[in-house]
C-alpha cells in the first residue's frame, strides 16, 4: 500500500512536470516561429534600412532590389475592400441572429454558418475563378463600368477581372463566418437585465439595440472585426487565385494586385539561386506574422477581458 501510494504520487508528479513542460513549449511556438523567421530574414534586415524595404516600390530580385511596398499595398487594398463589404453585412446578420431571429431560424442558420467556416480556401479560390472574376469582368466591360470609370478608384485599365475587387469579394465571403460567429456570441452575452432596463423605460427593440446592446458589446464587436481582418490579411490561396498577381501598387478596384502571401507562395520554389531572395521572402513572412499577431493578440485580450469581467 505504501509503495503503491509512492508510485502513484510519482506518476502524478511526472505527469505534472511533463504536461507543464509541453504546455510551455507549445505556448512558445509563436515566439519560436518569430525567431526562426527573424534569423532567416536577418541578412536582408541588416543590409537595408527598414524604410527602404517597406516603402520602396521596386521588386527586382535579380538586381537585389527588394521593396515590399507594392505587396503591402496589395494586401491592404484587398483586405480593406473585403472588410468594407463584410463588416456591415456581418454586423447586421449578427444582430439579427442574436436579437431578432426566432428559435427555429436560428437553429437552422447558426449551424450552416459554423459549418461553412470549414470550407477550404482553395474552394473559395475556385469559386472566385468561376463566378467572381467573370462577374467583375462583366462589370468592367459594361455600361455601368464605363460610367464608374470616371470616379477615382474605379478606373478600368485591366479588363481581365482578376482584380482587387474580385479578391475583396472572395475574402469577404471567407470571413463572414468568422466575424458573424464571434460578434453574435458577444451580442448575445449582453446581460438580459440591461435590455429589460431599456425596454422598461419604453424604448423599442431597435432603440435598445442601438443605444444599449451595441454600446455594451462594442469592444467585443470590434474584436470580432479585428479577428476577421487578420484572417483576411493572412489568407493565401483564395486571394492568390483571383487577384492577378501583378507587382504594382493598385490604383483602382479593377487593378490587379499582388499580396504578400501570394508573393511568398509563388516565389518560394525559386529562391535558392539568388542571394538574399530567400531572406527577403522570409522577411515578408515575418512582416505578415507580426501584423497578424498584433491584431490577434489585441482582439483576444479584449475578448478575454469580456469573458472575465462580463
Amino acid at each position: 500500500m505504501e509503495r503503491r501510494l509512492a508510485f502513484r504520487r510519482l506518476t502524478d508528479r511526472l505527469a505534472g512536470c511533463s504536461t507543464t513542460a509541453l504546455s510551455a513549449a507549445t505556448s512558445l511556438l509563436a515566439v519560436a516561429i518569430g525567431l526562426v523567421l527573424l534569423a532567416r530574414a536577418w541578412p536582408i534586415l541588416t543590409t537595408r534600412p527598414l524604410g527602404e524595404l517597406l516603402l520602396s516600390t521596386t521588386w527586382k530580385p535579380l538586381q537585389n532590389a527588394f521593396g515590399y511596398y507594392p505587396f503591402i499595398m496589395g494586401t491592404l487594398c484587398v483586405t480593406g475592400v473585403a472588410m468594407v463589404i463584410a463588416v456591415p453585412i456581418c454586423l447586421l446578420t449578427a444582430v439579427y441572429l442574436a436579437e431578432y431571429a426566432p428559435r427555429r431560424v436560428y437553429a437552422v442558420v447558426k449551424p450552416l454558418i459554423d459549418v461553412s467556416a470549414g470550407i477550404p480556401s482553395v474552394i473559395f479560390g475556385i469559386w472566385g475563378v468561376i463566378m467572381v472574376v467573370p462577374f467583375v469582368q462583366r462589370i468592367a466591360s459594361s455600361e455601368i463600368g464605363r460610367s464608374l470609370s470616371r470616379l477615382p478608384f474605379f478606373q478600368i485599365d485591366n479588363p481581365t477581372g482578376y482584380s482587387v475587387l474580385a479578391g475583396g469579394i472572395v475574402l469577404a465571403i471567407m470571413v463572414f463566418p468568422v466575424i458573424i460567429s464571434v460578434a453574435e456570441e458577444v451580442i448575445r452575452a449582453v446581460p438580459v437585465g440591461l435590455r429589460e432596463a431599456s425596454w422598461a423605460l419604453g424604448a423599442s427593440r431597435w432603440e435598445t439595440i442601438k443605444y444599449v446592446v451595441l454600446r455594451h458589446a462594442a469592444p467585443g464587436v470590434l474584436a470580432a472585426v479585428i479577428l476577421g481582418f487578420s484572417r483576411a490579411f493572412g489568407e493565401t490561396m483564395a486571394v492568390m487565385m483571383v487577384v492577378g498577381n501583378v507587382p504594382q501598387v493598385p490604383r483602382s478596384l479593377f487593378d490587379a494586385a499582388y499580396p504578400l502571401t501570394a508573393l511568398i507562395a509563388n516565389s518560394y520554389g525559386e529562391m535558392m539561386s539568388i542571394p538574399l531572395y530567400d531572406a527577403a521572402l522570409l522577411g515578408a513572412a515575418l512582416l505578415l506574422l507580426v501584423v497578424v499577431l498584433l491584431f490577434n493578440l489585441s482582439a483576444r485580450l479584449v475578448l478575454m477581458r469580456i469573458a472575465r469581467y462580463g
Binding site: S23, A24, T26, S27, L28, L29, A30, I33, V36, L37, L227, S230, R231, F233, G234, E235, T236, T261, I264, A265, Y268, L281, L282, A285, L288, L289, V292, L293, F295, N296, L297, R300, L301, M304
Partner: peptide, 21 residues
Amino acid sequence: HLVRLAMDVLWGIPSIVYGAF
C-alpha cells in the same frame, strides 16, 4: 491564461507562415 492566450494567437497565424516556418 497565458497558455490559452498563446493558443489563441497560434490559431490566428496564417497557414503560409506555418509553411515558411
